[in-house]
Design a protein around this nucleic acid. Structure first.
Length: 486
RNA sequence: UCCUCCUUAGCUCAGUUGGUUAGAGCACCUGACUGUUAAUCAGGGGGUCCUAGGUUCAAGUCCUAGAGGGGGAGCCA
């Protein structure tokens, strides 16, 4: 690598680094080679073998290094390399190939590498290697999550996952938001967002006990009960009431016994929190944010999207584009109930004001009635969290849920209650311990401000963007009830 | 957690009213083949029928319980 000299033109430094990454120690990535037209030039490529086929005289090796969904065809003369070497090059093996780029004689690819030198880094016993050239079910691939990144499907998903995460940081950074790291271990037990995983170093077979015959957590590592976070929101609010606009993006844990294609015990959540935003500003941000991310993926992950569109979901790209183009519908909870009850539809669960909307209701609104994403606001306070801003009707709160086609609720958020008296009275009504939240309440005591925020489930968005139907297939190593393998 | 369906070869599945030695395609192995595209052709090996009980002369098949998985629901992101 060349020395990096800081100088007059910052952009030069960027390109210096960029080039040094494209070609590392003389290695070229498959993606670069495939888009090259330097016919006759020698390249060295390294990657994993997808298939090998051929005849007595010539072997064709499909080589993939994950830089793109496409594999490059390596052509090897059998007499030159010998059957002994070529025998080792089976599906799943890892090789280094040095050869000359040529226009392909065969159909199906534009360029190919005619090998001069092949080195086998690692063989993969074909009778034991679980991945075949044929397609596998997603259920089977879940059982071999350590190898599934080597498939076309999971290569695409992981590249899209990366791009989506990158786009999230990009969006917020450009907009002047600060990324803050909220704690993964929390002593606050009052968030009410679900069952929590306990964090402890106590000896579970012989824990210290109090006089009242309860486990004595004062002896535990933190001197009190501690859990894995179910949300970074309360801490994010602290950041927003100092830095104005912040966001979190980190792992979140829920110990709910949820066995569905939409729930994980460990998932990633994005939680922006903004001072001086009311509920309408919040909705505007959520819509712009989602559309930015979808456009980013459409522009940067085209080949992967086309693959997923072809193999799993024929309407994927069309659906994403549709959401980008349409203005999200905005209605209140009360309006939603009216639409549902006058729809003439026979729902399994009848609608009545005060009850939460069921999946079937959300699907009807999004997929049949409006045919576009719907943001529902002003829910009854009885079915929403304590921190949401109370409306003057004394019945509803300034909550907002964004509902997406196919996957339902993708964003849940609200304007927050910034008035101390109202917040405390709500906390007391719900029987939540005020003492545990002293630090949160201090923000309302000292320089409180109107503010809003929302939570976006990263894997839920991944479901929408990839067209996958099970959330276990959009995270590398899913954690669900009875499953923490790998 | 509830409802429902499923579990047979490495993978995907068939297996009739319970009845001899449990099958197929693909994969794998061997061989053939002058550039293949999920290569093709011929031959071969490969089974704890999820687990534990039970009914029966006889269970892959019927019954009970359990485990794992899919779909739906609830909780939610």
């Amino acid at each position: 690598m060349q020395d990096v000299v800081y100088g007059n033109k910052g952009t030069d430094i960027f390109y210096l680094f960029k080039n040094s990454i494209m070609i590392i120690k003389g290695r070229t990535k498959v993606k670069e080679a495939l888009s090259s037209s330097d016919y006759g030039k020698e390249f060295t490529l390294k990657g994993w073998v997808r298939t090998r086929r051929g005849s007595r005289n010539v072997a064709f090796i499909a080589l993939n290094d994950g830089s793109t969904i496409n594999s490059i065809q390596v052509v090897a003369d059998v007499p030159v390399f010998g059957e002994e070497l070529l025998k080792k090059i089976t599906t799943g093996s890892c090789i280094s190939v040095t050869g000359v780029l040529k226009e392909s004689m065969g159909k199906g690819q534009n360029v190919e590498i005619v090998a001069n030198k092949i080195e086998v880094y690692g063989t993969a016993d074909p009778s034991a290697y679980p991945l075949q050239k044929k397609g596998h079910t997603l259920e089977f691939l879940r059982e071999i999550a350590h190898l599934r990144p080597r498939t076309n499907t999971f290569g695409s998903i992981l590249r899209i996952r990366h791009a989506l995460a990158f786009a999230i940081h990009n969006y917020f950074n450009d907009k002047g938001f600060y990324y803050i790291h909220t704690p993964v271990i929390t002593g606050a037990d009052a968030e009410g967002a679900g069952e929590m995983f306990r964090v402890t170093t106590l000896d579970l077979s012989n824990p210290p006990m109090t006089n009242e015959n309860k486990v004595d957590f004062s002896e535990d590592f933190f001197g009190k009960e501690a859990n894995l976070t179910v949300s970074g929101q309360l801490e994010a609010e602290l950041g927003a009431l100092a830095l104005s606009e912040v966001y979190t993006f980190g792992p979140t844990f829920r110990a709910e016994n949820s066995n569905t294609p939409r729930h994980l015990a460990e998932f990633w959540m994005i939680e922006p929190e903004m001072a001086f935003y009311d509920i309408d500003d919040n909705m505007d941000l959520a819509e712009e944010f989602l559309k930015y991310l979808l456009v980013y993926i459409l522009e940067h992950c085209r080949e992967d999207l086309e693959f997923l569109n072809k193999m799993y979901d024929k309407e994927l790209i069309e659906r994403i584009s549709h959401v980008v183009e349409k203005k999200f519908e905005r209605i209140t909870y009360t309006e939603a109930i009216d639409i549902l009850s006058s729809s003439g539809r026979n729902f399994e669960f009848p609608t009545n004001w005060g009850a939460d909307l069921q999946s079937e209701h959300e699907r009807f609104l999004v997929e049949e009635h409006f045919k576009r994403p719907v943001t529902i606001t002003d829910y009854p306070k009885t079915i929403k969290a304590f921190y949401m801003k109370q409306n003057d009707d004394n019945k509803t709160v300034r909550a907002m849920d964004v509902l997406f086609p196919k996957i339902g609720e993708i964003i849940g958020g609200s304007q927050r209650e910034e008035i101390m008296e109202r917040l405390v009275s709500r906390i007391e009504e719900l029987g939540i311990s005020k003492d545990d939240l002293w630090w949160y309440l201090d923000t309302r005591r000292f320089g409180t401000a109107p503010h809003s925020g929302f939570g976006l489930g990263f894997e839920r968005l991944m479901l929408f963007v990839t067209g996958m139907s099970n959330i276990r297939d959009v995270i590398p190593f899913p954690r669900t009830p009875k499953n923490a393998e790998f």
